[in-house]
Design a protein around this nucleic acid. Structure first.
Length: 448
RNA sequence: GGCCCUAUCGUCUAAUGGUUAGGACACAAACUUUUCAAGUUUGGAAUCGGAGUUCGAUUCUCCGUAGGGCUGCCA
């Protein structure tokens, strides 16, 4: 059988990390099986869909390296196809026009809940053969004793009673199909073999199965993946933080996000793993059954691992710091979790700003700091290799061997920070001239 | 309310009818050290509850409980 899967985002928002995780599993599965991936924008809700979200989705997918085969389909451009099938459904009495108002349906629903009955709309217009109406519904037998069941590749056997479904809506009119109808028609038309989608679609599946059956088409294989959760274990949404992939672009490497998302629901052989290795290892049946919390701390760690491995040129480009000297890249990447944190190291390419009291090490007196800096400034031109022993000597001769008394003021003079890499590392990057200048500025600052 | 899904450290998870229930992140401590970072070592931390099956259940079954999803003329 030819393997064919789909990316079916709805352009009613930016690309969501949960949707992306589902797409990653589709992608891994397709790549491993030399299958095809269809890109299909589900924009049947014209009110909420827009081109900006479309662009965000495509760009984010591209950024992550999630590619697809063939053209980009839009459901809004396929209304003729849906119309053809809607007419067929109507003619064959598999669907009918319903003329109940929203208010009537609300009352019905309210009464059902109060009576502890299953919520569903069993339409009384079914036999009326209306020419038109408010909405088109599939006719479902409310007295059926049939159990619709399917074998989910990740969840196992799932069953629903047909009688509980009710006559569900599939189109606003002949030219405006709703989700349930458009997906099934498209999945049939595009010969989708595996539908790998979020857990939240499980309860839609029996409806879809009924449409496949009405068209006498074979069922695809269903695989429902658990949702990505927020810290309170509910479906990940904006109140938990950034959900758009594009919100991660400035701080995270695409490989790191991909790696992290892949682990939210699947266990690969090692924590840091490439796409290629993931493709080789992936098995649909091994996708976990329960939802996973999006833990940003783990993402940060994975990201830091990828940053460390970046070549200098690549890092400077991605972090957008062309002025950073190549020699400085290593000491910086070792300390970063997020790309934008590079701004904490701006003293490597521009003069630091700081308050003079930061220069003080423990109980040091101003004269002592001055002396320490003066001594250090004499070392500015010393060969890097010998710099360490030279500074140690100063500590020994002037401060009873307290190296902090030398290193601390020096580091602050160079970086303006309480926390920074070894001053010798910084001197290596700044060079003797700049080093001397910064020490002198520190001395001046101390006097003021 | 109805239907459906799920349940191992704080988080991601491993294991399997028999293990001292393992790892990673996070956290804490130690080492290193002028301060960070990195690294190394160590530590605390979990099988939701109750029945049943069994010589033995974290694992299998059932019942609870909890959480989640769906319940649209959204997708």
């Amino acid at each position: 059988m030819k393997i064919k899967v789909r990316f079916p985002p709805s352009p009613t928002g930016n690309l969501h990390v949960g949707t992306t995780r589902t797409m990653i599993y589709n992608w891994l599965f397709a790549k491993q099986n030399k299958g095809e991936i269809v890109m299909r924008l589900e924009d049947t809700d014209t009110e909420r869909s827009n081109k900006e979200f479309e662009a965000d989705i495509m760009n984010s997918l591209k950024w992550l390296g999630l590619d697809w085969d063939g053209p980009v389909y839009r459901q809004s451009e396929r209304t003729k196809l849906y119309r053809k099938y809607l007419e067929e459904f109507l003619v064959n009495k598999k669907a009918f026009w319903c003329n109940h108002s929203k208010e009537e349906l609300e009352v019905e629903n309210k009464n059902q809940i109060e009576a502890k009955e299953p919520p569903r709309h069993v339409c009384s217009h079914k036999q009326d053969n209306l020419e038109t109406g408010v909405v088109i519904r599939v006719s479902v037998d409310s007295n059926s004793d049939r159990t619709i069941s399917f074998n989910d590749r990740v969840k196992g056997k799932i069953e629903f009673k047909e009688s509980l479904l009710g006559d569900f809506a599939i189109a606003r009119n002949l030219d405006s199909a709703l989700y349930h109808f458009a997906v099934v028609i498209d999945d049939i038309d595009m010969e989708i073999s595996h539908i790998i989608r979020g857990d939240d679609h499980i309860s839609n599946t029996p409806k879809h199965i009924l449409i496949y059956e009405a068209l006498d088409k074979p069922l695809p294989i269903f695989a429902h993946i658990p949702l990505v959760l927020g810290t309170d274990r509910s479906k990940l949404s904006k109140r938990h933080g950034a959900t758009a992939v594009s919100a991660y672009k400035n701080d995270y490497l695409p490989e790191a996000l991909f790696n992290f998302l892949g682990f939210l629901g699947y266990t690969f052989s090692k924590d840091i793993i490439s796409k290629e290795e993931m493709v080789a290892e992936f098995e649909l049946e091994k996708v976990h059954q329960s939802g996973a919390v999006f833990d940003i701390k783990k993402l940060d760690w994975i990201n830091s691992q990828y940053i460390k491995k970046l070549p200098p040129e690549e890092f400077k480009k991605l972090a957008n710091v062309p002025e950073l000297p190549d020699e400085a890249v290593l000491i910086v990447t070792e300390r970063l979790e997020k790309l934008s944190d590079i701004q904490n190291f701006n003293y490597l390419w521009e003069k630091p700003k700081y308050e003079k009291d930061v220069l003080q090490w423990k109980e040091m007196k101003p004269e002592e700091i001055q002396n320490s800096l003066l001594q250090s400034s004499f070392c500015a031109g010393v060969e890097i290799k010998k710099l360490g022993s030279k500074l140690d000597e100063i500590a020994k001769d002037n401060f009873g061997g307290d190296r902090g008394a030398v290193y601390w003021p020096l580091r602050v003079a160079l970086s303006g920070k309480k926390k920074s890499p070894d001053p010798i590392e910084i001197i290596k990057i700044l060079g003797p001239k700049e080093t001397k200048e910064r020490i002198n500025e520190a001395k001046k600052k101390l006097e003021s």
